[in-house]
Design a protein around this nucleic acid. Sequence first.
DNA 1: TTAATTTGCGCAAAGGTTTGCACTAATATA
DNA 2: TATATTAGTGCAAACCTTTGCGCAAATTAA
Lengths: 344, 344
Amino acid sequence: MTSKLADIAEYTGLSISTVSRVVNGHTRKYRISDKTKDLILSAANELNYRPNALARGLRLKKSHSIGLVVPDISNPFFAFVTRIIQNYAHSSGYSLIVCNTDESIDSEKEQIELLLSKGVDGFIIMPVGIESAHIEELLKENYPMVLLDRCFESLNTNSVLVDNYMGSYTATEHLISLGHRDIAIILGLKNTYTTNERLRGYKKALEDHNIIVNSNYIVGKDYRIENGYIETKFLLNLETRPSAIFTTSDLITVGALKAIYEENLKISEDISIVAFDDSEFAPFLKSPLTAIRQPKEIMGEMAVKLLLADINSNKSDLEKSKIVLKPKLIIRESVSDKRVLAVI
Amino acid sequence: MTSKLADIAEYTGLSISTVSRVVNGHTRKYRISDKTKDLILSAANELNYRPNALARGLRLKKSHSIGLVVPDISNPFFAFVTRIIQNYAHSSGYSLIVCNTDESIDSEKEQIELLLSKGVDGFIIMPVGIESAHIEELLKENYPMVLLDRCFESLNTNSVLVDNYMGSYTATEHLISLGHRDIAIILGLKNTYTTNERLRGYKKALEDHNIIVNSNYIVGKDYRIENGYIETKFLLNLETRPSAIFTTSDLITVGALKAIYEENLKISEDISIVAFDDSEFAPFLKSPLTAIRQPKEIMGEMAVKLLLADINSNKSDLEKSKIVLKPKLIIRESVSDKRVLAVI
DNA sequence: TTAATTTGCGCAAAGGTTTGCACTAATATA
DNA sequence: TATATTAGTGCAAACCTTTGCGCAAATTAA
């Protein structure tokens, strides 16, 4: 059976105050004698004392837990980042309350409200992104928070991001450099910062190489496998089929692969692919995937580091950090070199 | 700014008790007049009232959160199950505190202790499995709990499992049926229920077909990619190389693939593979993977359902449910048919 | 020996909720 | 008219901690 401070106090004949101070290691500050300290400590051990975090949190207005809100924890990218965050948070003395929004803005609002109720000391949010009022609220109340992977242009928040524009530009330019001109992009959730940036990079790369952007080639509306599948089907059945597709997430890629093989096409030979997000499986696919790799470890660690700094700062200093990480193009074999054909 | 019951009481001129009863919907039971109710509700709205879950939890001895302890949340299998659990728990009014143990038994003990401190109403644990005393403790104290994916033979707990023995037997027999006789297995964490069961299924299948088990072919010690890589390297360099490898987890499989391609071998042609755990990417691999698929959705949902039942039961009834789900063999192309060669 | 200081610890309030019990005013019953 | 019910609220304790302040005993200084 677990006991409380009062039990130890009774057992040792000392007061609750003294017991509290000892179990919290404040013996120096309050000048508790070594004798008393040892007595209490062994009693605590004997009686199997376990602090009640609820009571402590109530009194201290500090719960030592942080709220993580993530769009889809089964997405490999988010799953990995979550693990990093959990590890790092734990080793800093914080627990993680994990909330999955399934990319629903209503769910996001509700979950944040819930986390607020639970008295989390701060938030790491990978927002859905189509609405920001509730986030702004948090900001106004000075809740420690960092936005991860996605942010809002209009909001001055702590955030750690990947340079989506550059990643997208690089991927697109890679295709162009290999002779592709009919390049499609399958986007994730509409009207979000991330999607906008990725689209911007794609368009800019095309423009910089004097390729006219074809609006038929810009498709997609969310990050699920189905979206990748449907849009790829659509693209493959266009009268002028693109020679390359840029899939902007892990799961979209899976859907695209499914559609491509269903149509009995060969990757690279018949259709080229570049993916945003590099999977563990990418090197071993039928056609090893050329992909944009995001620095996941760093993203997770950085987010926690920033959040802890925010939690431990006094609220008055308004310095927010916006950290932008560089993604990296990993070249494998899913893109054909069309220049060769031209030359020969 | 968020307010508390006392603020609403002051604002409306009513007592804290009444406010509490109204915001909790106990107006019938306590016969609060509609007038009072409306007054309080609109005041609550106006003052932006948010219940303090810490205080409530303290008073009620109920936190409406459940502790999830998982070995590695970045493993696709666990990530997926976690998502299901989170969704289902949330829709039942519970939050999830997620703890990652990285397969460390010490971490597991520590995290459980932490969750106990936080006053979780119950546990869903995917235990490391090499030690059970701390779990037994929980059981003795009648904490609501369900073990997921892995259990202990010696402990009578709620648990939802996959029939590892059968999955393993099926996989092995599939290989045998296609003419393989030199079959290796790469196991996960040693001395755990899951590993023991998988090994047992493997051995039994061999024995049932009069194939002598070769201890050189039984390798592996944990679930990481590195383990898969190292052990596969080892197997491939044996003087009598196995013709097939049974990899017992997603991540082990990734490691195995890496090793195989590094040795410039072709899957199926040079070496066959069957995997435990079916990945989204499995169909699109260079050699589409024949795999044992676990019913992940059901596992997650069932675990929550069992836990909630346990939480809501009175502690005296000791009925524990042990639910064993059947895995399924998904045949693709990573196994060669050696019978054909023999016949021709 | 007396006064001043230090040592070692306890009192009690505070943090926000919930709920059994009691209390007042209004209404119904006799 | 006097009494019993009922409707509608409030009091205060309890959940478990933490911590500013204060107090007695022990020690030191004068």
